[in-house]
Write a protein that binds this DNA or RNA. Structure first.
Lengths: 154, 154
DNA sequence: TAAAATTGTGGGTAGTTGTGGGTTAATTAC
DNA sequence: GTAATTAACCCACAACTACCCACAATTTTA
């Protein structure tokens, strides 16, 4: 049952099969609006995970990138690095996308996979990697967390 | 009789059945406004209980999260940890929601269940856990209570 | 007080979901 | 051009979930 279109929450444990495929949770597939044509754009994430954007969300990002001037070298590099590892992937009849070897290597994916809906996109993790990041952050950032939780009432 | 929509008070004792379902008190169901489509979003609470938000209340939280930039690592982690254990659940014809195993484990739920309305959301407890927390808090927090009483007139 | 409606709990069944693997088409290498 | 490798597509099946019905206990209504 979907909350709102192209918006994802929750985490799911799946496995990367011998052919490099990962199941997209059924709940997430149901959230994907029809115009996405069953397609996610997968790319390198920020903390050694893989991002999977609904096609239309990605198109929005592309639109924003077009408005960045290429005269700035920072911009050029940002645009290049945002786009160079991205590729659209349609999921098959069983609901699986296949992940390129380059992204599997980047995210150090093993058989065990964690897919997390983080509102506007999905994150695909090796659970061990996520734990590393989590532990590191929880130590240093207690103060900023409390700051945030004053702004957002849970 | 409802006091105001999507606002809950009072506590009820129920049981977790063999299929992981919990009844939502009829009073609370009646409080839920029609636009929620009989749906709560359940997630990890603070102190080892489960929170259940009316769908629309949760959508407000999501809206706030969408306004946080993902370029900050603190924000990314905050967003991830807020939504990763959340899932929408529509109650069935008998008024029960099913709780994921992951949340049952987190809240150490047993057969005996306590559901408490805490104004904007519900808390689902193992009564034993709640007692532990209560005992701990009543010892240390006399001062903070007096502090609060300046802000809230009872 | 009796009848009717509502509420909480148990359980059965049909459909859905996740996963493995086989077959054919497309791409690449030689 | 042909062989080898890769990718796309399809089928199968066990496990799980959503949906339905049943019924006792309680509350409401007449």
């Amino acid at each position: 049952m979907t909350i709102s279109e192209n918006t994802f929450i929750g985490e799911y444990k799946y496995s990367l099969d011998s052919k490099g495929r990962i199941n997209i949770p059924s709940k997430f597939r149901q959230c994907l609006s029809i115009e996405n044509d069953s397609t996610f754009v997968i790319s390198r994430g920020i903390d050694f995970c893989i991002y999977a954007y609904p096609l239309v969300t990605w198109q929005g990002i592309e639109h924003n990138l077009k408005n960045l001037s290429s005269l700035s070298s920072t911009n050029r590099s940002f645009i290049r690095n945002t786009v160079r590892y991205a590729s659209p992937t349609k999921y098959d009849k069983q609901g699986r996308i296949s992940i390129t070897q380059s992204l599997i290597d980047f995210a150090k994916l093993d058989k065990e996979i964690l897919i997390i809906g983080v509102v506007n996109k999905l994150e695909i993790w090796n659970p061990k990697q996520l734990k590393l990041i989590d532990d590191k952050l929880s130590k240093i950032d207690q103060a900023s967390y409390e700051n945030l939780s004053e702004k957002i009432i849970l």
